[in-house]
């Protein structure tokens, strides 16, 4: 436990709150980097996922690609792109965007797919146009699973951003690698603890968001009439 004491001492050391290596700055970098990556990935994955989910076309391809991408080790992709584009922040951005796409894509299209077909059929039968079906039915009902996809993508990006410090001077991972180089275990451990806390905090935030975006009426709130329909509750997991 002595090791943890020194790690906490490192985290609390005022010397680590000034200059280019300041902890708040590193945390900010880590978050901004992750956020930008997620925005890029979402801009690609969400429209594509909605298209797949609404039309049902290209699903097989999406499943295969997502599964295949999961098998690709992040470090390999990261180092390969870094060799191509050179050391710097471009490689992590490219590699992590690629990695964040599959979970968001899956969240988007499974969100649409999990909706009771009869609900969509009925919406069409009463005269909703395809665009209205997407906007008024599929979007709100598919939101919980999309947020679920964003949640796993975020966790993955936060974790991999740590690894990104291997090829770029970026974020909290820097402490791990510079500590490794100088054999300063307090720094490594302190940095690791910070990353873990950051990841857990985001996990908690997402858990809260996910609870709020489940459309009312789908969540099966207790205390009211008995729940008789089971078909449409799939979206609530």
């Amino acid at each position: 436990m002595n090791l943890f004491a020194s790690a906490i001492a490192w985290i609390l050391d005022p010397a680590n709150y000034v200059g280019l290596n300041a902890i708040p700055l590193r945390i900010g970098q880590h978050l901004v980097f992750s956020l930008v990556t997620l925005v890029f990935a979402s801009a690609i994955a969400i429209p594509l996922g909605y298209l797949i989910g609404h039309t049902g076309r290209g699903r097989g391809l999406a499943v295969t690609t997502s599964g295949g991408l999961r098998a690709i080790p992040t470090l390999g992709l990261l180092t390969l792109v870094a060799l191509w584009v050179g050391i710097g922040v471009v490689a992590p951005y490219v590699a992590l965007t690629v990695l964040a796409i599959p979970p968001i894509l899956a969240g988007a299209y499974t969100g649409f797919e999990a909706i009771d077909r009869r609900t969509i059929d009925a919406a069409r039968a009463v005269g909703m146009s395809e665009l209205q079906i997407v906007r008024k039915v599929e979007l709100p009902l598919g939101l919980p699973l999309l947020i679920g996809g964003l949640r796993s993508a975020t966790l993955q990006v936060i974790a991999t951003a740590t690894l990104a410090a291997y090829v770029a001077d970026l974020g909290l991972g820097r402490y791990l690698f510079s500590g490794l180089k100088t054999r300063d275990y307090a720094e490594m451990l302190g940095g690791s603890i910070l990353v873990i806390l950051l990841a857990l905090a985001l996990e908690g935030i997402f858990a809260l968001i996910q609870r709020f975006v489940v459309p009312r009426g789908v969540s099966g709130r207790p205390g009211t009439a008995p729940k008789l329909r089971t078909g449409s509750s799939a979206a609530a997991r």
């Binding site: 966790l155 936060i158 974790a159 991999t160 740590t162 690894l163 991972g173 791990l176 490594m188 451990l189 940095g191 690791s192 603890i193 990353v195 873990i196 990841a199 857990l200 985001l202 996990e203």
Partner: peptide
């Protein structure tokens, strides 16, 4: 939710 690299360090 714990990232892998930090876990290996901890």
């Amino acid at each position: 939710a714990v990232p892998s690299l930090p876990l290996i360090f901890v």
